[in-house]
Nucleic acid binder design. Structure first.
Lengths: 229, 229
DNA sequence: GTCTATATACGGATAGAC
DNA sequence: GTCTATCCGTATATAGAC
C-alpha cells in the first residue's frame, strides 16, 4: 500500500465528513435542506480551519469567519448554536472516522509486523488527507470543555494502546525481543504526529508521506531487530 | 551525565532568567528597583505559564493574570506595555539560554556519537527543567507577530541542523552508514519535543527523563548500527 | 510602586425584516 | 435561508489618587 492507492480506496472526502456531521447535529442546525447545509458546512469548516490554524481558534472572531465564508453573522448562527459548539463539531467527527478506518485496515493484516506497518502508514495517510483537521484538533484540544477534553485524551491513548498491543504481541510470538513497548509506542506516536504538526517543514524539504512512513518503519524495525529490505 | 548531575551543574534558575529579561527590557519596564522587578516578573511569568498552558494565552485575560499574581491591573502594566509584549518576553529568552547551554555541552563531547548522545540528553534535560516554558513557546508560537514567528521557525531549524550535522559527520567518519540525516534529525526532534508536550502522560506512566533519553538513544543507535550496551 | 475607577473597543449572540 | 442592526458583556489599556 502507498498513499496513492490509499486515497483512491478510502475516499474520505471532506464532503462526506460534513454530511455525517449534519446528520448527527440535525437538532441544533436550523436549516433543513441537506444540500444547502452540506455546502455551507464545508465552507464554514474550511474557513475555520484556515483561520484557526494560522492564529488560533480563540483569536478567530465570528466576524473573521463571516468575512472568509461570505456568510453573514446571522446566517452562521443558523448552522451552529455557539462558537464553542462549532469547535466541538470539528473535533469529534475526525476522531471517529480515523478510528474506524484504522481498525478496519489493521484487521486486514496478518502478522504483528504487518499490523505495525499498516498502523504507521494508515495513520500518516489519514493525517495527510485531513491535515488541517488533525493539526486543529491537536492544537485546540485545550480549548474544549472538560468533558470533551477527556474524550481527546482517551483518543490519544487509544492509538498508543493499539501500537503497544501490536508490539507486545510480536514479542510474545517471538518475532522480536522484549522492550518497554509503552515507551516505544509513545515515541512512534510522536513521530506520526510530527508529520502533520510540521507540515510546512516537510513540504519545504520535499519529503513525501511515503518516504516518511518508510523511514519511521525502518527506524523501529532496526530497534526491534526486524529485517527490512 | 544524568539529569541529577545536569541540574546541579547548570542551575538555570527561573530567577536568573527573570533577571536577564529585566536587563534586556529595562526601557519598557517602568519600575526601576531590580529586586522588586525580578520578584514580580517571576510571579507574572509563573502565573502566565500556569494559566496559558491550561487554556491558552489568548484565553487568559488580564484579570485572570491579576487574580493569579495578586497584582492589580495597573501594577501589571508597569511591568510590560501590552499583553503581546508579555508573550514576546516569555518566548525569546528561553530560546537564547537553551541554545547557549546546548552548544557549550556539545563542544565538550569528542566523537559524533558522544555529541549525539549529549544533544539528546541536554535537550531533554533542559525541557524537563523548564517544561512550562518549552510547552508554552511551542503552543503559542502562532500568536507571535510575523517577525518573531520567523525567529521561532529559525530556532526550530537550528536544532534540526545541529542533529543533522552530527549525523552527517559520523557517516563521513565511517562510524555509521549513510542515511537521510535530515529526516532522521526531524524524527529525533519529534521525540524530544514529545517529552515536554505530553508531560502528563509520561508522569502517569512513571517514565523518568533519563529512561526516556536512553530509549531515544537506543532507538537511533539501532537505526544507525551503533553498538550500545 | 500599587491601587481603583474608567475610557473605549470589540467580542459573541439575537431579533426581526426580507 | 440570509441579511442588517443591535444588545450587552467583557476585553485591553490608561489616568490619577495614594
Amino acid at each position: 500500500m502507498n498513499y496513492e492507492t490509499f486515497k483512491t480506496n478510502i475516499a474520505i472526502s471532506k464532503r462526506e465528513l460534513c454530511r455525517v456531521i449534519f446528520r448527527e447535529h440535525a437538532d441544533t442546525i436550523q436549516i433543513k435542506t441537506e444540500e444547502t447545509v452540506v455546502r455551507n458546512l464545508e465552507k464554514i469548516f474550511d474557513a475555520t480551519l484556515k483561520i484557526s490554524n494560522r492564529k488560533g481558534f480563540q483569536a478567530m472572531s465570528m466576524r473573521d469567519l463571516s468575512r472568509e465564508t461570505g456568510l453573514s453573522l446571522g446566517a452562521l448562527y443558523s448552522y451552529f448554536p455557539s462558537k464553542d459548539k462549532l469547535l466541538a463539531m470539528l473535533q469529534n467527527q475526525r476522531r471517529g472516522v480515523s478510528r474506524r478506518i484504522l481498525e478496519e485496515q489493521i484487521a486486514g493484516a496478518a502478522t504483528p509486523w504487518e499490523k505495525f506497518k499498516t498502523t504507521v502508514r494508515v495513520h500518516l495517510y489519514l493525517s495527510e488527507a485531513l491535515q488541517p483537521w488533525f493539526y486543529f484538533s491537536y492544537m485546540e484540544a485545550k480549548n474544549l470543555d472538560p468533558r470533551q477534553q477527556r474524550a481527546a485524551i482517551e483518543s490519544e491513548l487509544f492509538t498508543d494502546g493499539l501500537l503497544a498491543d501490536i508490539l507486545e504481541q510480536g514479542a510474545l510470538q517471538g518475532h522480536w525481543p522484549e522492550r518497554n513497548h509503552e515507551i516505544s509506542a509513545g515515541l512512534i506516536k510522536a513521530m506520526l504526529q510530527d508529520w502533520y504538526l510540521k507540515r510546512g517543514k516537510h513540504k519545504r524539504r520535499r519529503i513525501s508521506v511515503d518516504q516518511y512512513a518508510e523511514t519511521v518503519i525502518a527506524v523501529m524495525g532496526a530497534y526491534y531487530h526486524v529485517n527490512t529490505p
